[in-house]
Simulated assay, not measured.
Amino acid sequence: MNNVLVRRLAQLVPMLFFISLVSFLLVKLAPGDPVQAYITPRMNPEDIERIRQSLGLDKPLFMQYLLWLKNVLHGDLGYSLIYHRPVLTMIAERIPATLGLMGASLIMAMILAIPLGLLAGAYKHRWLDHFLNMFAYIGISVPIFWFGILLITVFSVQLNWLPSMGMRTIGAEDSWLDVVRHAILPCIALSFYNLSTYVRYIRSNTITQLSADYVQTQLAYGATRRSILFRHVLKNVLLPVITLFGISFGELVVGAYVTESVFSWPGMGLLGIQSITSLDYPLIMAMIMLSSTMIIVGNLVADLLYRVADPRIKALR
């Protein structure tokens, strides 16, 4: 396992370098000029050029990239062009909100998807399987922003049970129960989509595993179908779930852009939308690099979990 870890960590640096280079070029080639946020109607062209020089935007593109890379290697992610604050400080303020929301939704989806997917595969073509399939198709097909608006309309506007947006109520900033109440609707919206995806993957793999020879052997030895399902089949169907979980690592820190925007959740997703619309280059690059790092780390964690879930993978290496 140590060799795998060292090899994958060695691949991390060139991958991040390539991602940063391509992302920087794409961001700079995007239409728009961040200097426009500083321009006033009475500003002279000399003042505009002075602002451009102070932001380093007058230098050649490769010099801008090298300067940005040098600062990043020293732990400086830059200074927000729009918010006039250090990018690292802004990210540190937003990450806890996103980690809490995304972590809760992923855990909830995982806990529910595993038994539901196993049952759907075990009762293939029966009423339970048809019901869960319909549920999964709806969850995958329905746009998450529409589902979020529907939740707000029903539970916030019509029933007035839960708050519709934000993370805290004014005057109740110190109450963790208030934070939980605000998180229920966005967590349901995110879990609904993830749950539907996981159920489909687990159901498909359960059907495949139930037709394998080892299942027939266990039945011949007198094992119950329930024990085979939850003791043997479960371990084999976890592999695609581990893959999905590894891919979802990037979302843990970057968040769900659409969901956080619909519910005005003050996390990384909402910050990302604001940075893109305002062409805040340092903030956009920080978001890209952070999500890329977490996706790579997620794949590494998934690779290590493969070896725990299936010893045959360890033997092959």
Rank of each mutant, 00 (worst) to 15 (best):
N2L: 11
N3A: 11
L5F: 11
L5D: 03
R8E: 07
A10Y: 08
L12G: 04
L12Q: 10
P14D: 07
M15N: 10
M15G: 04
F18P: 00
I19Y: 01
V22R: 02
S23G: 08
L26D: 04
L26M: 14
K28C: 13
P31I: 03
Q36V: 11
T40M: 08
T40R: 07
T40C: 10
T40F: 09
P45K: 07
P45V: 06
D47H: 10
E49A: 13
R52K: 14
Q53H: 12
Q53G: 13
Q53I: 15
Q53T: 07
S54V: 10
S54L: 13
S54K: 13
G56P: 05
L61F: 07
M63Q: 10
Y65R: 02
N71K: 15
V72T: 13
L73S: 12
L73Q: 08
G75E: 01
G75D: 04
Y79H: 15
L81W: 13
R85D: 06
R85H: 10
P86A: 01
M90P: 02
I91Q: 06
I91A: 09
I95Y: 00
P96R: 04
T98F: 01
T98H: 00
T98D: 00
S105M: 10
S105P: 05
I111L: 08
A113R: 07
G117K: 03
G121N: 03
H125G: 09
L128V: 13
Y137M: 09
G139Q: 02
S141C: 14
V142F: 10
I144H: 06
F145Q: 00
W146Y: 14
L150G: 12
V154L: 14
V157Q: 13
Q158C: 13
Q158I: 15
Q158N: 11
L159Y: 14
P163F: 01
G166M: 08
M167T: 05
R168D: 02
G171T: 08
E173Q: 15
L177C: 09
R181C: 12
H182P: 05
H182Y: 09
H182V: 02
A183C: 07
I184E: 06
C187A: 11
I188V: 09
S191Q: 04
F192V: 13
N194E: 14
T197R: 13
V199S: 05
R203Q: 14
N205Y: 07
T206D: 05
T206C: 08
T206K: 00
I207N: 09
Q209V: 12
Q209D: 05
S211F: 08
Y214F: 15
T217Q: 14
L219E: 14
Y221A: 07
A223Q: 11
R226P: 07
R226M: 09
S227P: 04
L229G: 05
F230M: 02
V233L: 11
L234S: 03
N236E: 04
N236L: 07
V237K: 04
P240I: 06
V241S: 08
T243Q: 08
L244F: 06
S248W: 01
F249M: 11
E251H: 10
E251F: 15
G255R: 00
V258I: 14
T259L: 00
S261P: 03
S261H: 10
F263K: 00
S264P: 03
W265I: 00
P266S: 07
L283V: 15
A286W: 01
M287Y: 13
M289E: 05
M289S: 03
S291A: 15
S292F: 02
S292I: 08
V297A: 14
V301T: 11
D303Q: 06
L305P: 02
L305N: 03
V308L: 15
P311Q: 09
R312V: 04
I313G: 06
I313L: 15
